[in-house]
Design a protein around this nucleic acid. Structure first.
Lengths: 328, 328
DNA sequence: AATTTCGCTGCAAACGTTTGCGAGATTGTT
DNA sequence: AACAATCTCGCAAACGTTTGCAGCGAAATT
């Protein structure tokens, strides 16, 4: 343990603890000579203030909690990455917890956050989480809670999301612009609100044009299932495949590679993605960007607004962007 | 803020603070009746012990630090994911910091760790880090430091690594078994010890067989550069490409797809990987597995050993495994 | 010379816990 | 009935900070 404390320094220098404390934080009350002596000794002794003591005394932990289903997920980890960076730049620390999609662990993580007296919480709830009262309770005692990505239906909380409907609409419009005729659209878990939103927006956009695009939609819940579904649907000779997510895209691309189809000559592909996976293929897959990095920055600034006293409940979304990759 | 404290409970119940404290942790000195009353009130009041006060008092933070170049990296985030899980299961918290490959930020992160009085540190140093004294200093004051993946050359510290040399050897042997004749081997940053080890082991294994395999090696430092290099080397008609890492593999695969080459008919591919990326292609790329999850578990158990008092300095490696994917 | 002002520093309480020690009350033993 | 043993519980110090307040000597003002 690092046991250099203010007390220790004060004893060596024959000064009081309070003088040391003030000298170290450049308080105007302390003379320059004293400051210099103190700082010098502090550095040679590798003094580091004890964050626990400070938090205890000031009851301001400068610590955020972040609960997410899984760290090892392209979207979440870019989100986390950007939040972590913002935290560091603003003098905050971050405690990252995974729920593994288990509401129980989620509650446990929440408890950990409370024990550590976090200043604010970022949370992406698991699909199974129905009761968000524990989170709201945190908010009631003055700890801002920012829900991100998978957010509760409840309207009484701060949320930051990717623009689900808009993203799907943008993808649909890109397909329409390219005058595609037969589209296979693959979506994820039909129970998730994110799926519902994207499905509705996509099909609405495709169908509202009267240029008779033939649309086939399907739901799959894993990359492997998407691969199988694609192989199956390929028999119907679609000219375009829309993927709701990276997970689906990876399955689709395997099927396409397996069949030896050329993109975009034989078949076009478009997806909604963070951008990492689409860049792995040649040609790079055209995608509507939903940036975890941007979402992270947005979440952080929303947190800062709450901390600054804003009680305004808002639901923010990041705008999407079509990134042309040559696959459409 | 949650301001239910032992004191508050004690005042309501007309008991002393120490009695509350003991009752809550099931201390034998306290009667069952009292315990029951205390626990009951504590739960209705949403009491959560203040971790800062506990750490201050006990000087045992139950907090680990983890410093890594970047969270959004397939290998690191699987590592982190597994460490986080182990921490949670063992009652520890984890503070994750990114260095962004900057030694300056690394030092700053280290300072943060010290301020929070971490119990132990997991660290993967950035390639530019030359001076690891600050880390060793931490060790000197009794805080175990486990280096993982990119570890210093220094021999006086605990390290857990993937079996760099062995992995490369396994890949080389797989190539030999398949009777390949002309191999292009692409490696990463030539300055990294991981690169040196893999390069040496790979070339040694290939060359020690007297079956005259033609070997071309090259170094590239990004996916895009690997793509360009591959396009260039492809003119020499290699029958196999070995990639040192996922980053290189992604570049190679783009070049292969661009040229419309069939794997493995036209060209074989083998890589060293965590396993995620290889599964994205068809056929799935054959790879020697270096599991971030396993490495995380190993790192954690090594940490536990240190904490248990083991002063034995060890350099641990996880065994590798050839995963056949059909690309060789 | 007396008073004010100012620059520098120390005192002490407080944040919420844990824990060794001691004390009173109850029970059991002779 | 006297004593010991046991059960409950409280006191108080300590962990390392921050900060309002007060003190004190020296310089400046009257």
């Amino acid at each position: 343990m690092n046991n250099t404390t203010l007390k220790k320094i004060s004893e060596i220098l024959g000064l009081s603890i309070s003088t040391i404390s003030r000298a170290l934080k450049d308080h105007p009350d302390i003379s320059d000579k004293t400051k210099q002596r103190v700082v010098e000794l502090a550095t040679t002794l590798d003094y580091e203030p004890n964050a626990n003591a400070i938090n205890l005394r000031t009851s301001n932990s400068k610590l955020f909690g972040l609960i997410v289903p899984s760290i090892s997920n392209g979207f979440y980890n870019s989100f986390i990455s950007s939040v972590e960076e913002e935290c560091r730049r603003n003098g905050y620390s971050l405690m990252i917890l995974q729920s593994g999609d288990s509401p129980d662990i989620e509650i446990n993580n929440l408890k950990l956050c409370r024990q550590n007296r976090i200043t604010g919480l970022f949370v992406c709830i698991s699909p199974e989480t129905v009761n968000i009262d524990p989170f709201l309770k945190l908010k009631e005692i003055g700890v801002p809670v920012i829900f991100f990505d998978k957010v509760p239906e409840n309207n009484n909380c701060n949320k930051v999301c990717v623009a689900d409907a808009i993203s799907a609409t943008m993808a649909a419009n890109a397909i329409i612009r390219k005058k595609k005729k037969k589209v296979l659209a693959l979506f994820g878990n039909a129970n998730l609100s994110i799926t519902k939103k994207r499905l509705a927006a996509f099909t609405d956009t495709i169908n509202e044009k009267v240029n008779k695009i033939k649309l086939i939609t399907d739901h799959t819940t894993s990359s492997a299932k998407a691969e199988a579904a694609t192989l199956d649907h390929l028999k119907g000779k679609p000219d375009t495949i829309f993927c709701m997510s990276d997970e689906i895209l990876t399955g689709v691309m395997k099927a396409i590679q397996m069949k030896g189809l050329k993109v975009p000559q034989d078949i076009s592909v478009i997806t909604i993605s963070n951008g990492e996976i689409p860049k792995l293929y040649y040609p790079e897959t055209t995608y509507v960007e939903t940036s975890g990095l941007k979402l992270g920055k947005l979440a952080f600034s929303s947190m800062m607004a709450c901390l600054a006293g804003s009680t305004f409940i808002q639901e923010l979304t990041i705008e999407s962007l079509l990134v042309e990759g040559g696959s459409l």
